[in-house]
Amino acid sequence: MYVERFCGSWIQHPFWSSKMLIEDRQTLNQIKESSVSELVIDTSKGLDVAAPEPAVEESVEDAPASPVEAADPAKMAPPPVEHLQASSMADEVLRAQQIFRRGKQAVKAMFTDVRLGQVVNTAGLSELVTEMNSSLSRNPHALISVARIKTKDEYTYLHSVAVAAMMVGMARALGMSEPQVLEAGMAGLLHDMGKAVMPEAVLNKPGKLTDDEFAIMRGHPGEGHKLLLEWDSVPDSVLDVCLHHHEKVDGSGYPERLAGDNISLLARVGAICDVYDAITSNRPYKAGWDPSESLSRMASWQGHFDPALFKLFVRMLGIYPVGSLVRLESQRLGVVVEQGKESLLVPKVSVFYSIRLKQGTPVTVVDLASEHEKDRIVGRENPEDWPFRNLDSLWLPS
């Protein structure tokens, strides 16, 4: 049969395209096992349904009870609302790492399907975004902190997952409804789909791009938009983020040089999340910047980002995001391992080095929010100015 359209929510569809010819048992099983309960077929392009069997008369007494009457009332009740308990940073980091592992595989599979010209299977993306939302409900910092951790070989795939996590966090901070939060996450997951059709030699080039190569890469928002349009039920907001996440509020971005409020709210959010993850991540041609250093540099780029949204983004991550190298008044160095609950100025810091002694010290976690703690942060430090390696090991579980 030829499927003309899947009915229901677009993020529940098991396939990238809503139009397809069912040619094998595997495809049929994927549809049957998905949450799709209804679809439309085009009999001019494929088989029609079989003729119904003749009805067999039966008495009312012999007829089975209706599904409603036969069902267990307890099973028919709506599922209880999940009350998510707050979890520790350490516990939620472990869950976040699992989310990113699954997300990497999902995005990698989508890119591979696009490159091979196959129908893209998006089953599980909705569940992935829902898991992100749940993680941020339990702990607002763990998932977003883990988002930055990736090797240069993982960047292409984990970047989309990281942007999705941050967009979910920003949508929550903006007070969006649950469906809008999930849509924001899906927009983050799909915002860079155009890179799937970029030449891999350019996409993964271990050096600065030439002007011609950069011109090719600037085409990825439009190419991704074309891919998403093949699925005619993708929400406008997701299409918009894909096309406009490289626009700047001063009108100097691309592809359409939109400015100010002509850029949608979600695309302005996407632009901030996209750039932050790009500059804090290890990439083929450069090492990622320190999180606090990255926020400082982004704040200096006048005209790039919506100022109000950028302030909200900083509040979400913390003035000193997890993983930032900071100097304490006691002339010690430490890495931020967890945000303070009451103030962004007093996080927990893993202290490991004495500047006066010019040597390492036993690692100690200092809670600057404690009423007994007199030390405080006097400034951020650039890790490039110090010989330390793998500072993330001070907050990531081994």
Rank of each mutant, 00 (worst) to 15 (best):
G219S: 11
V249H: 00
S233D: 10
S237T: 07
R257A: 14
K205H: 14
G224L: 11
E213T: 07
K208A: 11
K248T: 09
S237Q: 09
H244D: 09
R283Y: 05
A278H: 14
L209I: 05
K226W: 12
R257W: 07
K226V: 11
A259T: 09
G207Q: 14
V249D: 00
Y254K: 08
L243A: 07
A259F: 15
A278V: 12
P221D: 05
E247R: 05
R257N: 13
V234H: 04
G260Y: 09
S264I: 02
G224T: 06
D274L: 08
V275H: 05
Y285H: 11
G253K: 15
A267W: 00
I216T: 08
R283K: 13
V275S: 04
R218H: 12
I263K: 08
L209A: 03
E200Q: 12
E247P: 04
M217L: 12
R257M: 14
S252D: 10
G224R: 10
P235Q: 07
D236A: 10
L209S: 04
E200K: 15
H246E: 10
V269K: 00
G222S: 07
H245A: 02
D211Y: 11
D261K: 14
H220V: 01
Y285W: 13
L258H: 06
K248Y: 14
D236R: 13
R268C: 04
L258K: 14
S264A: 05
H220S: 02
L258P: 00
L243N: 04
W231V: 13
G260P: 04
P199D: 08
A278S: 13
D240I: 00
R257Q: 12
D240H: 02
D261L: 12
E230N: 13
I272P: 00
L266P: 03
P221G: 06
V241K: 02
L228F: 02
H220T: 00
T280E: 03
V249Q: 03
E213S: 03
D211Q: 14
D274V: 04
S252I: 06
Y285N: 08
I272W: 01
D232G: 08
A278Q: 15
D250N: 13
D212N: 10
P235L: 08
A267N: 03
G253F: 15
G222M: 13
